[in-house]
């Protein structure tokens, strides 16, 4: 009769029970500022867009601030696809790229006064409320983190992509894993606080 076996089994059970309590959510957000896929099979599908927008040119090579184009992110729930006249504001002054096929398409839309039918890449379920404004205000304006880190935490290293692709899980556990951590309140301050944990902050 094997006492050893029985005891082993018992401690296995104990350990499993304990793990469920002490373990973090199974999906991790990774360290703040990580810009690549977190390795939890969170890579989204490749989405075909009407215009293959080169984020790598704009954000990567030219180092344009994300919020130069996604201007609503700091004051609205949605970051917003840039309005067409925003694109034109620059591209009207850039005759040297005027003949590229993507720019031609852009001008086509502009001339027809048609909005570009972009496809949503980061599309949360309809019962979820995600507020860009609060996250940008907190981490970009208050904590003064680099913009690519702030945006990249959820969107990945967009500067290395052409059209955007989802690289993070964006699932609830993933969100919670970050909300649970303590973040500095302000740059230079030692006061920390974590994200809100009330259901109705994210669920509508």
């Amino acid at each position: 009769m094997s006492y050893a076996k029985t005891l082993l089994l018992w401690f296995l059970m104990l350990w499993m029970g304990a793990t469920t309590v002490w373990a973090e959510p199974f999906v991790q957000g990774g360290p703040i500022g990580s810009q690549t896929s977190d390795g939890y099979n969170a890579l989204g599908p490749v989405v075909e867009q009407p215009i293959e927008f080169p984020h790598n040119r704009h954000a990567g090579d030219m180092k344009i601030n994300c919020m130069y184009c996604h201007t609503y992110a700091r004051r609205s729930n949605v970051s917003g696809i840039p309005r067409l006249d925003k694109c034109m504001g620059c591209h009207n002054l850039l005759p040297q790229v005027r003949d590229k096929p993507r720019i031609k398409k852009l001008f086509e839309y502009w001339d027809n006064k048609q909005p570009v039918p972009w496809k949503k890449v980061h599309d949360l379920p309809d019962f979820v409320r995600f507020n860009h404004e609060r996250h940008i205000q907190r981490f970009y304006f208050q904590e003064k983190r680099p913009v690519r880190e702030v945006c990249g935490y959820c969107h990945g290293d967009i500067a290395s992509m052409t059209t955007a692709r989802r690289v993070k899980a964006l699932s609830m556990g993933w969100c919670v894993s970050c909300h649970e951590k303590d973040h500095l309140e302000k740059v230079g301050s030692s006061v920390t606080s974590h994200g809100p944990n009330d259901c109705w902050l994210c669920h509508k």
Partner: peptide, 18 residues
């Protein structure tokens, strides 16, 4: 051991982040 770990589990879950 069952009830003690169970109680800890339940109480810990109730006191979890959310």
């Amino acid at each position: 051991f069952g009830p003690t770990t169970g109680l800890v589990l339940i109480a810990s879950a109730q006191a979890s982040f959310i």
